[in-house]
């Protein structure tokens, strides 16, 4: 295709538009939107999944059948562990979020450091939660509360693990992107696309991870604070 035209306003200052690049741009734009839309939809679906357990929590609590929702004699999970798990996830989300503001100012190294730290904190939260579940000093079926606790926390762990895998791939991907690309338009479509897709994926991840931090706080309130 030798046919070319001047790019419309708003498109990056890149080599002249051909039919191929026009279509590539179209689908590239769609993919960026898909990442944006997809993560919000995923948050909706996850909210229904976690909501399932929150409903179970309040439903069983309100029924309190046989007075066995959370009877006085039955032990609960250890408060310190809950507080630390919640804090690890929240701090991890905050650190990553601060790193995100730095990468927008071309400080790629700062984000890489914050992302690695966030990854370590997230994995530590997973590890601590798994340790807590393996060292329960109460039986899962000893009360309604203990059932919901033992049921809900592994689900949270699995979702956090998935988020951490995503973060890990982002850390691997950013290595090949030059820092300057985050403030200046790269010279080729291929590089521009790679950067924009990384940015879209990163901001989508941030939405998910911040959401999971909120879920961590909600679970902490439910399972440790008001139980």
């Amino acid at each position: 295709m030798s046919e070319t035209a001047t790019p419309p306003p708003g498109t990056p200052d890149l080599p002249a538009l051909t039919r191929e690049s026009e279509e590539a741009n179209f689908f590239h734009e769609a993919a960026l939107n898909a990442t944006w839309t997809g993560v919000r939809l995923a948050v909706g679906a996850l909210s229904f999944a976690f909501g399932c357990f929150v409903f179970a929590y309040f439903y069983l609590r309100s029924l309190n059948s046989h007075g066995m929702w959370h009877p006085a004699g039955v032990k609960g999970p250890q408060p310190w562990a809950g507080a630390v798990i919640m804090a690890l996830v929240v701090v991890s989300a905050l650190v990553q979020y601060v790193g995100l503001t730095r990468i927008k100012a071309s400080k790629k190294g700062a984000w890489q450091a914050s992302a690695v730290l966030a990854l370590v904190l997230g994995l530590a939260a997973i590890g601590l939660q798994v340790w807590e579940l393996l060292n329960l000093h109460f039986f899962p079926g000893s009360s309604g509360f203990s059932s919901v606790f033992v049921g809900a926390t592994p689900v949270f762990v699995i979702v956090v693990l998935a988020a951490m895998i995503w973060l890990e791939t982002l850390i691997m991907r950013v290595r090949v992107i030059p820092a300057i690309s985050f403030v200046e338009q790269p010279p080729t479509y291929a590089e521009a696309f790679a950067v924009q897709r990384f940015q879209a994926s990163l901001s989508a991840f941030t939405v998910l991870w911040n959401y999971l931090a909120v879920v961590a706080i909600v679970f902490w309130v439910l399972f440790y604070l008001t139980a």
């Binding site: 069983l60 059948s65 079926g141 309604g144 203990s146 059932s147």
Partner: peptide
């Protein structure tokens, strides 16, 4: 767990 067992706090 006892999500669905009435006399252990489930329903």
């Amino acid at each position: 767990t006892a999500f669905f067992t009435d006399d252990l706090g489930g329903s």
